[in-house]
């Protein structure tokens, strides 16, 4: 999966630590998601989507397409 989390975060001027605090996951996990090493669970993906006020498919994209 690819995602635009880093760009969205940068738009708001948040650090990884800010985002980690708001989502209740560690900063390392935020980084692993941003670098595409780790695909978040559905509940976490929904929390991310809700936080940025966008649908999930506007943030996460399957690798193929």
């Amino acid at each position: 999966m690819k995602n635009t989390l880093r760009e969205l975060r940068a738009e708001r001027g948040w650090t990884q630590a800010d985002l980690s605090e708001q989502l209740g996951v560690s900063r390392q996990t935020i980084n692993a998601i941003e670098t595409g090493k780790y695909d978040p669970s559905l509940p976490l993906a929904f929390r991310i989507a809700a936080l940025f006020g966008r649908p999930i498919e506007a943030i996460f994209h399957p690798d193929g397409s």
Partner: peptide
């Protein structure tokens, strides 16, 4: 440790 594991985020649990 069990309490710590329950409070870990999903990647740390993994």
């Amino acid at each position: 440790y069990v309490r710590y594991f329950r409070r870990m985020d999903e990647l740390h649990q993994r």
